[in-house]
Design a protein around this nucleic acid. Sequence first.
DNA 1: TTATCAGCCGGACCAACAGTCCGGATTCGA
DNA 2: TCGAATCCGGACTGTTGGTCCGGCTGATAA
Lengths: 161, 161
Amino acid sequence: MDDVATAAGVGKGTLFRAFGSRAGLIQALWARRTEPLRHAIESGPLPLGPGTEPRRRVAAILDAILVVKLDNRHLTLALEERSGGVSLYEQAQYQLVHQLLSDLLRDAGQGDESELLAHLLLAAVRADLLDHLIGGRGSSRRQLRAGIGAVVDLVLNGSGG
Amino acid sequence: MDDVATAAGVGKGTLFRAFGSRAGLIQALWARRTEPLRHAIESGPLPLGPGTEPRRRVAAILDAILVVKLDNRHLTLALEERSGGVSLYEQAQYQLVHQLLSDLLRDAGQGDESELLAHLLLAAVRADLLDHLIGGRGSSRRQLRAGIGAVVDLVLNGSGG
DNA sequence: TTATCAGCCGGACCAACAGTCCGGATTCGA
DNA sequence: TCGAATCCGGACTGTTGGTCCGGCTGATAA
């Protein structure tokens, strides 16, 4: 926070007055970075926008989220860190995506458990997991998108097992 | 740490000499709490022990982990918190379970993606998610076990969608 | 142009907390 | 009994998120 304030050319007080807390700053940054994505989901073209078949739309949204997270690894890691007693699951932005995915899954016929299933799918793109997969296992971005996409497909459409 | 040392009737130095760090203490506690479970998985009776059909065994292991986590919510939350720069995924105990689940999934015919799938299934029982589901949504223990069990089944056996 | 005042800003300060370190107690061997 | 090696406790340090107040600025009125 000190460094951020200095880099921004303001005092620490100003920073905290503007964003409330470290978590507030991070969430504000995240909100700005994800604005195009939110817009595309709300009213953009297929397959992200409304009108796509629910399962395909869920997969598209998850892939888009994955890409944003890969493009903002440090920020995302900080965002999802439990800080100030606020967990990821209490953040408004998480609850919004979760609600959307739950609704889509319900539409897709996953009546029961659509809420849990939405949590599970979102857990597949959690920042620390991505960080581990990239940093530790050396997966490339391509491999990650393909792999996670496959697993999500498997969850959504069944393996036929 | 101060409080722990005081409660244990020793100095803080002793605590750190014995466990290395806060994370070390938490992992040691966790290792002790999960010792019976590890033993049951290694050489116990069905469905946890070896010999069970892979998918069933995966489901049984996940349910057992879920129960332990529910019985030790605070400890588990602390364990999975990124602390000291060490994420959950770098912990030896996580890697062991992940390896086991990966192998079982491979045996079950999920050749490709068995590793990612194992991560996904373990993400379904992450401490902060459980905490959110219990604390915020008021799900009972029973409901959680049933719900997560159903979702895991769906992932393992397909929904037929 | 100058006096007054409200609001905003900066950065010194505070509290919490993981981790270190050294003076002293204890124990073991001679 | 004495000396040395080991172990222990808790005061201390460094870092960091967050607070607070003295002072600056800019607007307004005389």
